[in-house]
């Protein structure tokens, strides 16, 4: 009797073990992101993998792809099978619907805060001692100041840089577009190199020693300061800048194809969790969760921020006027 019971228990145990093994899945997700989010998602992925395994038993491997936001969006449209995209601006994600119907038109309403779990802005990174005494946008358009910014045709960050300069000029010239164009023209006259993405521009400025000021994401500037040290670079906060709202979404077509729809959704939702928000803040992204934002308030300087909608009437309009073929950037720099 005793032997029989042990056998039954052993069989039940073996069945349970095998059933668990059979149910647990190995999942691979591809997150196609913009240039300076490498460090953020390296840390976040580890946290999510742990979270998801504890919740479901499934092992997730998250692969990352980084580059200029526009370029990354085009890669997905051309067939790079991303389960999720975490790009710099909504226009690039809109293209996934417009050009390839990979996502629904209302993708931005699927997650809180217009699907932007964190925000950022554009600041200046200068060399130690700020030898050109750069304090605000007016200083970087002076002759002899070397400015480093990426190419707005391929980089989301560069588009924020361009629009921030334009909005500053409008604000200080009675909203005169001609004055703004003249101002931004002067800015580009100081730009010698256009990298394809924000990380490339950082390399140009820090590692190749080109230029006096780097226009970059706030998170990228703080990361550079952390890595290079205060004896090499300084951050200058301009008086007025842009509210950057990098959005995220599941790429429905590919996530469904891979059978990853559920985990991809969870991956993005977890960005809004306290842990996800903490990780964003630690990587110098401004968290959307009020509690976490309050905790890290001292880390982020206060400055006047404008939104794309308020000054430019939305990304679609701004994109067409400034970065479309024959647009303002082409008129200034490319043609």
């Amino acid at each position: 009797m005793k032997t029989s019971t042990i056998k039954k228990l052993a069989a039940a145990l073996a069945l349970a073990v095998s059933a668990t093994g059979a149910l647990a899945k190995d999942i691979t997700l591809l997150n196609v992101s913009y240039d300076p989010t490498r460090e953020l998602y390296e840390e976040y992925n580890k946290a999510f993998v742990k979270h998801w395994e504890s919740k479901t038993g499934d092992k997730v491997t998250v692969n990352q792809s980084h580059g200029g936001a526009g370029k990354q969006a085009r890669a997905v449209i051309d067939g790079l099978e991303a389960d999720v995209v975490t790009l710099a601006l909504s226009y690039d994600i809109d293209q996934l619907h417009e050009k390839a119907k990979l996502i629904p038109k209302d993708w931005q309403s699927r997650l809180p805060h217009n699907s932007s779990p964190y925000t950022s802005t554009i600041v200046f990174l200068v060399r130690k001692g700020n030898p050109k005494n750069i304090q605000d946008w007016d200083d970087i358009v002076q002759p002899g100041v070397g400015v480093v910014t990426p190419n707005p045709k391929t980089s989301g960050g560069a588009r924020y840089n361009h629009l921030a300069a334009w909005a500053y000029a409008l604000k200080h010239n009675n909203n005169d577009p001609a004055a703004a164009k003249a101002f931004v023209t002067k800015l580009y006259q100081n730009v010698s190199v256009l990298d394809s993405g924000a990380r490339g521009a950082t390399t140009t400025f820090l590692e190749r020693g080109v230029g006096d000021v780097l226009l970059t994401w706030e998170n990228e500037a703080y990361l550079a300061l952390k890595e290079q040290g205060a004896d090499k670079v300084e951050i200058v906060i301009p008086s007025y800048s842009i509210l950057a709202e990098p959005p995220v979404t599941v790429v429905d077509k590919f996530a469904n194809k891979h059978g990853n729809a559920e985990v991809a959704k969870a991956y993005l939702e977890y960005l809004y969790s306290p842990e996800g928000q903490e990780i964003a803040a630690r990587n110098y992204y401004r968290p959307s969760d009020p509690a976490v934002a309050a905790k890290y308030a001292s880390q982020f300087p206060k400055l006047e921020l404008f939104t794309i909608d308020a000054v430019f009437g939305g990304w679609q309009k701004a994109q067409k006027e400034h970065f479309g073929d024959g647009g303002i950037f082409d008129q200034i720099y490319g043609k």
Partner: peptide, 16 residues
């Protein structure tokens, strides 16, 4: 700076 810019442009051109 001129030399560094040229170097970097060449580097970017090769990457592209």
């Amino acid at each position: 700076q001129k030399v560094l810019v040229l170097e970097r442009k060449q580097e970017i051109a090769q990457e592209e």
